[in-house]
């Protein structure tokens, strides 16, 4: 379908050689980079403004939220943080962080393992029933999860797993989030088959092809999945709400909601402060892992 004439290998080799570029081109490149930089900076400013607002508002007393929609607090205070760090009803704040961290890490491991395996089967192995199973997997994406909450709860309750982390973690090891399976499928299908077929001729089985050829090539997809799983699990509210009973086992999102109960007073200041603190770990996680988004590809490029 594409009109693009594929380049020949020699061309590529040419391109890889260090070439001396004409000076005018360098200049154009610098100008482009400056435009690029300014455009991104402007966009960033717009996108980050609400977050800046949120950050500054953590220094507003709660009663100021309704009266002062501005950026700068009128009566700046650190009370919100002081209050938040104390924790809730005897459970210190770090506990909620630790809980969230544990659940999220387990979720990342489980999701990566199980989703990549399933995705390989869907993308690379031809067997009876693969089409129907693939459709079924896509089908699980379509049903609003609210209607399956109760039957699932009944199951975990019968298994006596309520008030443990199992209902939150076990599904991740069973690739129940079709999003990630499908995502990885798409990336695997984009990898040329020549290599794994060659490896097969060499006598490699699916397991070896999966681990030594496919996995390294889908690093960007794996990193993406890891980032999303971590962040989404970190932010998940409904799962822990239903399955965790003891406050000392609560992850952050539940703890966060406790500062803001509509039937008593809503402590907006503390809510904003907690949610800002809750942002920090996932922001760090993202900053660390987004580097691999490049690294994965760079090493891939260097291999030849």
């Amino acid at each position: 379908m594409t009109t693009f004439e594929a380049p020949r290998v020699e061309v590529v080799e040419n391109a890889l050689e260090p070439t001396t570029q004409p000076r005018r081109r360098v200049k154009r490149k610098t100008v482009n980079t400056i435009i690029w930089f300014v455009a991104l900076l402007a966009l960033t400013a717009i996108v980050l403004y609400p977050l800046l607002w949120l950050f500054l508002s953590t220094f507003k007393p709660s009663s100021e939220f309704a009266s002062n929609p501005g950026l700068i607090p009128e009566n700046p205070t650190v009370d919100n943080y002081v209050k938040v760090v104390e924790g809730i009803a005897g459970t210190p704040l770090w506990r909620f962080f630790a809980n969230s961290f544990f659940i999220a890490i387990m979720a990342v491991i489980g999701t990566l393992l199980s989703s990549a395996l399933a995705a390989y089967a869907f993308a690379r192995i031809r067997f009876r029933g693969v089409g129907i199973l693939f459709a079924a997997m896509i089908g699980t994406l379509l049903l609003p999860f609210h209607v399956i909450i109760i039957p699932q709860y009944i199951m975990f309750n019968k298994l006596e797993l309520v008030d443990t982390y199992w209902p939150l973690i076990l599904p991740k090891f069973l690739a129940t989030e079709a999003f990630f399976v499908f995502l990885i499928v798409q990336f695997i299908r984009n990898i040329p088959r020549d290599m794994d077929e060659a490896a097969r001729i060499d006598g490699a089985g699916h397991l070896r092809i999966f681990f030594s050829i496919i996995l390294p090539l889908i690093k960007p997809a794996l990193i993406t999945s890891a980032i999303f799983t971590f962040i989404w699990t970190w932010n998940d509210f409904l799962g822990p709400l239903l399955y965790v009973n003891s406050p000392e086992k609560y992850p952050l999102p539940i703890a966060l909601r406790l500062y803001n109960d509509a039937t008593s007073t809503s402590d907006y200041g503390a809510t904003a402060a907690v949610s800002f603190l809750a942002l920090v770990p996932i922001l760090i996680f993202f900053i660390v892992f987004q580097r691999f988004l490049v690294a994965g590809v760079a090493t891939q490029g260097l291999k030849g």
């Binding site: 996108v47 980050l48 609400p50 977050l51 949120l54 962040i231 989404w232 932010n235 509210f237 999102p253 966060l256 949610s275 809750a278 942002l279 996932i282 922001l283 993202f286």
Partner: peptide, 8 residues
């Protein structure tokens, strides 16, 4: 970053 806060 905005996507990090999810729907809190």
């Amino acid at each position: 970053a905005p996507s990090l806060i999810g729907a809190s």
